[in-house]
Computed example of a mutant assay.
Amino acid sequence: MAEVIKNRIEFVILFDVENGNPNGDPDAGNLPRMDPESGYGIVTDVCLKRKIRNYVETVKEDEPGYKIYIKQDVPLNTSDNTAYEYLHTNSAEIKALKKKDPEVDLKIRDFMCREFYDIRTFGAVMTTFVKASLNCGQVRGPVQIGFARSIDPILSQELAITRIAITTQADAENKTTEMGRKNIVPYALYRAEGYISANLARKVTGFSETDLELLWEAIINMFENDHSAARGKMAVRELIVFKHSKELGDCPSYKLFDAVEVKKQEDVEYPRQYSDYIVRIHEDQIPETVEVSRKI
């Protein structure tokens, strides 16, 4: 069995987009998400975790211990049924089983953490279990990722496009093309910050050193198997990791994040590539007990 992580960790992800929409907002006609006051671009944590889940699912292909709980086209009840199979019971008999064994809720929670990588990593709210008289409740995952924000304000462009495949036969008699719209960001560099709690890993989910290495691999490659015409050219450019010397950490996380400076080159007005930025880590601001590594 892999060893559970023992050190608190923080990390910074830098990724960019070129001529694409990194995260459309369905409430705004699928325009790239943006802070309306400042104009900075936003990519949600849900979007980033989806990429990580997709990578793990692609690499592991439902290998035991690496299944994905939040999965497209798979109802949560379907995944929950694996827990009933583990207990050799069903939703109709679970109340009687709970009377015999008051530890059933805890056993199912631990089973779900062992079986599903994303529960072990990000946690989950297993409400379908509550409806079935179980009470696994909310599993707090040790890995948390905040919203990504662009380093500079973004300019969202709406482009007109045409296609020659007409939708209906009636329309085809009157026209040869149809119009459409496409929203892109010409270029933007985004920064996301994340946290990994060794305390929650030990007490709740059992997130291990092996799981951690898979997480780094998934973050570095999260756009490599997820290309689409809508998202343009996206890539993770930096993964900076801060490893504390103990479970509860050596200093506040904001001090480590503040030590990573990302800014435009002085002669660049409109950045259009990653080399238009400078990334500096001010190591004099980081305690000696915190280990810094750049995974890319």
Rank of each mutant, 00 (worst) to 15 (best):
T162R: 11
V139K: 08
A218Y: 00
A92Q: 14
D105W: 03
I219Y: 07
Y270Q: 10
K182G: 02
P287V: 01
E37F: 15
Y55N: 08
D101F: 05
Y195R: 11
Q285I: 15
R272I: 05
K175Y: 05
L189G: 02
C113Q: 00
W216K: 11
L200E: 15
A92T: 07
R163E: 13
K203L: 13
P75A: 11
K233R: 02
E283C: 09
C113S: 07
I164L: 11
T128D: 11
R280H: 13
C113F: 04
S275I: 05
A188I: 00
D284V: 10
V204A: 05
K100I: 11
V130C: 00
E217N: 12
T177W: 11
P142R: 03
G24D: 09
L97H: 10
V59N: 02
V292N: 06
K95F: 02
Y187T: 04
Y187I: 00
N90E: 03
I145F: 08
N81M: 15
A235L: 12
E103D: 00
E103N: 11
T177Q: 06
P287N: 10
A229F: 10
L200M: 13
E158V: 15
E115T: 12
T82P: 08
D211T: 03
A235G: 06
I196G: 08
I5E: 02
E238L: 06
R237L: 08
S293A: 06
F257R: 10
V130W: 12
K175M: 14
S245R: 14
P271L: 01
A235K: 12
E209S: 08
V104E: 08
M126I: 06
N135P: 00
R50F: 00
R149Q: 04
N225R: 13
R120S: 08
R120A: 06
L106S: 13
K100D: 07
T167M: 07
I42T: 09
T210R: 14
E209R: 05
M222F: 09
G41K: 00
Y66I: 02
P26S: 10
Q265M: 00
T289M: 11
L134A: 02
G146Q: 14
P102A: 01
V139M: 07
E288K: 09
A124H: 06
Y55F: 14
F223R: 03
K131C: 13
R272F: 02
A160N: 10
D171T: 13
E37P: 07
A259G: 08
E266G: 03
I161T: 11
L215V: 00
T121Y: 03
S197C: 06
E115M: 08
V139G: 01
V104A: 01
C136Y: 05
N54G: 09
N23H: 10
L189T: 09
E238H: 13
D73T: 11
P75Q: 02
D35V: 14
Q144W: 10
Q144T: 04
I145L: 12
Y66K: 03
E93M: 03
P75R: 02
G249E: 00
Y274Q: 12
S253I: 07
E103T: 12
E213N: 05
G24T: 07
V290R: 08
Y187L: 04
L189D: 04
Y117G: 06
G141K: 04
D211Q: 02
N77Q: 15
I240S: 10
M112N: 05
N135I: 07
E213I: 00
N7Q: 15
L106P: 04
V143W: 04
P153N: 06
Q285K: 15
T44L: 15
A218T: 04
V290T: 01
T162E: 11
